[in-house]
Amino acid sequence: MQASPGSPLVELRKVSLAYGSGPSRMLALEDATLDIAKGEFIAVVGPSGCGKSTLMKLVTGLLPPTGGEVRVHGQPVKGPIRGVGMAFQAPTLMPWRTTRDNILLPLEVVEPHKRRFRRNKAEYIERVEKLLASVGLGGFGDKFPWQLSGGMQQRSSLCRALVHEPEILMLDEPFGALDAFTREELWGVMQALWLERRFTAVLVTHDLREAVYLADTVYVMSRRPGRIVKVSKIELPRPRTLETTFTAEFVDIVHDLRERIHMEHA
């Protein structure tokens, strides 16, 4: 079945997920229903442990849902889907590879690059160098990850998630472990990359300002078992800047979201 034009890229229909079985069975996500349009940037916010990472794994097919259905391109997801890039809170770079070789990894694994990799390595290396430069890491390709700062590692991790030009980018609190300055700087980097490439992005975060800065749509999740309790369209013009975050409009949106989340803790 081919997706009809205008239909969403990713569809979640009443998706639930329970970890474990028997007495240790625990519902992590309940009846999540949401659509992600092609090229849309969504953010999922919610208290820690509410099932945000779980939701992400469901979308990418890393976990099969225990209930409901996940569709990508109109097709039910049955295993890890192709064309995804992922970045986590930990950079998960391979310490035995240089930064450049780390970023080359997806090209060694994903078709059609895999097939062309050996013969066109120079071309791919050039692509990596360009990407590195665009996130402000020009000239650091030869360094090993452990020779880079946390922020630089996270930039490299973003490069690795994007180098094969995935259709969907999954970001699981990628800036969560960074200091405030680096984090806000990387919001700008992230937005620039998205504006240039228009991939579909799912950002999981517990930072409301981050969500509002980056996303077109913010989904608020309840405490465990996670349900989607609020959907908020962010109509702020792009490119957003740090200045934007001080405007009344921005502050209001963040305030609304925070209210809703506080209700969860009441």
């Binding site: 890393l62 890890p80 192709r82 995804v84 992922m86 078709e111 690795r160 999954m170």
Partner: peptide, 13 residues
């Protein structure tokens, strides 16, 4: 690390 495994699996490795 499970995350490393997830990165590889999501690439279709």
């Amino acid at each position: 690390e499970p995350e490393m495994r997830d990165v590889m699996r999501s690439l279709g490795a």
